[in-house]
Write a protein that binds this DNA or RNA. Structure first.
Lengths: 200, 200
DNA sequence: GCCTATTGCGTACAAGTGTACGCTGAGTAT
DNA sequence: ATACTCAGCGTACACTTGTACGCAATAGGC
């Protein structure tokens, strides 16, 4: 069969990635994971790990990338919903909150590595966030006719506020999350309105 | 002499705390520090550590507390400056950026532990940030006659934005920091203006 | 059908970890 | 002067860690 070998390899690779994600939680950060621990959880020998990743760092970057993919999918979903029923701000925030609820470990990884010890990780996360900022800035610039700089500033503030609300929502119950969503929406309205006043 | 003994103990305690701060950096987070490492840096035997702290956790919380004290001093300084020359927003942001420049390790500790693995740490940092939010909300509420809720929301957004700008400033040069300061100031103005429009 | 490449395993080792335990010497109270 | 307290040390132990190395089995190319 064509690449039965490669196919099995890919499968094991996934097993490792999934194991790592499974180990991430409120009380376990990526940097606190050991290679042996991941191998154990994945059900392979420690030394087999090296057949798939050079390093724990390489695995980590892969996880961040996967997180990025999930985020971009989210973005697409949000655009879709906005097209369907308008309400840019509240739809965006709600979609984001949904994502955090569904994949808390992915979000937590991004959140932590954004201020982590590895420059490569920080850059990777920052790059993912920039996708949001740029896309949002574009949207603002074209629908509202803003100067590019002001649109970027506004988009940047919005992404930070939403991301932060997400961080708080991680630890909280459903009703608290609802409140945090409202809070973020209002704060984004402040920003939108204020930018509008100043750059009109 | 009265408490020569206790005095020496306090001195060693400080040595440990300082050693821990010294070990924190871009590439070393608190959770990656080992007890033995801190002891080594402090120039004491590993087991002597226990004469002063139960745990690395206990030391960590002490560091966070010290960070909090530094932050509150900063807040006082900012109030002072505002009394002297007005310009609430820009003065606040600039004072904050100064702090980050002068004690990057303190700020980095707070930044990281805010999303860290220990609930106690997260709560400790969050509590420190709340001081800012409450104080700022109070100020807004009384000088602008806002409803309490709106003032809190606004203050919250502002603190997040400034804190975030600080995080970005950690990695960057002096000229970049200047730009980030400008950015944060503009973003705070968005929030202030927007809140004003909406809650007028 | 044979040869080679490659995935996965087990063993092994040096290094680092947290912490229990008992000793010493000096400060302190009596 | 004597007895007590306690900060600091050294030793010791049981673990965990990353990774080097060689072997077994199996897939794929010839």
């Amino acid at each position: 069969m064509s690449g039965n070998r490669a196919l099995q390899k890919e499968k094991t690779r996934r097993t490792i990635i999934d194991a790592a994600f499974r180990l991430l939680s409120q009380e376990r950060s990526y940097s606190s994971l050991s290679l042996r621990e991941v191998a154990r959880e994945a059900g392979i020998a420690p030394t087999s790990f090296y057949r798939h990743f050079e390093d724990m760092d390489e695995l980590g970057l892969t996880l961040v990338d996967e997180g990025g993919v999930a985020l971009r999918q989210l973005m697409r979903k949000a655009r879709q919903r906005i097209r369907d029923k308008g309400l840019v701000i509240s739809t965006s925030v709600e979609t984001f909150m949904e994502f955090i609820h569904n994949s808390p470990h992915v979000f937590r990884l991004l959140l932590r590595e954004r201020s982590g010890t590895s420059l490569a990780f920080r850059k990777a996360v920052s790059r993912e966030l920039q996708y949001f900022v740029v896309e949002l800035a574009d949207y603002i610039q074209h629908t509202r006719n803003y100067p590019a700089g002001a649109a970027k500033l506004q988009a940047d503030a919005m992404v930070i506020l939403v991301f932060n609300a997400g961080a708080e929502a991680l630890d909280s119950s459903l009703t608290e999350r609802k409140l945090l969503t409202e809070k973020a929406i209002t704060q984004l309205r402040f920003v939108a309105k204020g930018a509008n006043e100043i750059f009109k």
